[in-house]
Design a binder for these strands. Structure first.
Length: 122
RNA sequence: GGAGUUGGUCAGGCAAUCGCUGCGUUAACAUUAAGUUUAACGGGGAGGAAAGUCCGGGCUCCAACGAGCAGGGUGCCAGAUAACAUCUGGGGGGCGCAAGCCCACGACAAGUGCAGCAGAGAGAAGACCGCCGAUGGCGCUUUCUAUUUAUAGAAUGAGCACAGGUAAGGCUGAAAGGGUGCGGUAAGAGCGCACCGGACGACUGGUAACAGUUCGUUGCAGGGUAAACUCCACCCGGAGCAAGACCAAAUAGGGUUUCACUACUUUUCGAAGUUAAGGCGCGGCUCGCGUUGAAACCGGGUAGGUUGCUUGAGCCUGUGAGCAAUUGCAGGCCUAGACGAAUGAUUGUCCACGACAAAACCCGGCUUAUCGACCAACUCCCACU
């Protein structure tokens, strides 16, 4: 049985965690989302979310977006490379429905995995 | 049946699977500065506005003898309340056929200020047109008297509109200093009178605001604006859960005590420098190399953690008081407590096809947003009996 839980170990908890990702990231972007990634010292991936109030005005929508992204991460956690990820929401994100958002995120996961492998080979 | 008013309730439901969160129980692990971590099971898990952060309180810390000033707030009356700018009832004014709804609703007769255009005049006003011209003035007609025979005086009548009188009418304006009528007058005017209205005092009703087919006095208003300054009455200490309380590593530094402290130099007599011994680390031991006073305790306190953190002006039911807001009593219930921040996702299904929008210390309000559904009371219209 594969464990799909989303425990505290899989999260970025402190500002220090976040800034280390922001310092030297791999990027994969789209008009609605940007994913930043950075290698960590664990054997599992970790996730942090940044949904600024400036981009998504209502608290209800911000929560919704975070939940969908977290759910996506939870279900994909075993297919992802063990890195620290930070997902940043951008302007047009409010217009996507859940299905579209999932598709877009999956695409970006792949993109960032490819970038990481290229970096390792160099 | 239609139109409407007021008050209240609800805020998609159900099932399966995978997750999140904190609570309880059990088990495992770990013994750390802190009952922390993991697993299983059980039963909880956003709102009527959680929102805006506009008021009011609780709570916490700081300050504090009291009073005053400054500053801010409130503003018909009474009650409710922990308190309020809220609510309830009442009064007054306005809107609506009505049920009902709306109103910062103290004082401009303490002082100061403000008011475009128009208009003659805008504040104890004003003669532009108009009206009058009684009185005074001017010249004229007629009569009388006097005499110096042409003047003077007196009376009389019509006239001029010169002085002046006049706020009834016109004009302007949002507003022109009570209204209508009669008398009065030269023409007019509260100038006088009647009625209506007002002001003041009394009386009556009402806790009061206030009201009155009441009585008396008074010819009677110097209008508006106080979310203009101001005056009057009453109220208000400041900052906020990032408040505050507790535990507390590592590293550096502080204090106290005990132990260790060779020799030389300097000295402000605290100590500092060089060196040796000793200690510590590497090592089985020696040599060697590196490093250096050691130990204990105390206090402050960073990272981090715990707490504050949900049992409360609580909710439900019954019942008593009150027109009501509200409140007394009895019984029952526990209903989110996160902290990079939990209520979700996917699928199926049903229907009325789901609005506005999510806690962050907690309550009471206000304001704003909102797809709809339902219930109760009431009003108006139509139809039927």
């Amino acid at each position: 049985m594969v464990n799909y839980s989303y425990s505290r170990e899989l999260r970025l908890l402190t500002p220090a965690n976040f800034s280390s990702v922001f310092k030297n990231p791999l990027r994969a972007g789209s008009p609605q989302l940007t994913i930043l990634a950075c290698s960590n010292e664990f054997e599992h991936p970790r996730l942090g979310l940044a949904v600024p109030k400036k981009q998504v005005k209502l608290a209800v929508d911000r929560n919704k977006i975070k939940r969908v992204l977290r759910e996506n991460f939870r279900l994909n956690q075993h297919d992802l490379l063990p890195l620290d990820y930070v997902i940043i929401a951008k302007g047009g994100i409010g217009k996507l429905d859940n299905n579209e958002l999932n598709k877009l995120t999956n695409k970006l996961w792949k993109k960032i995995a490819r970038r990481y492998k290229e970096q390792q080979q160099r």
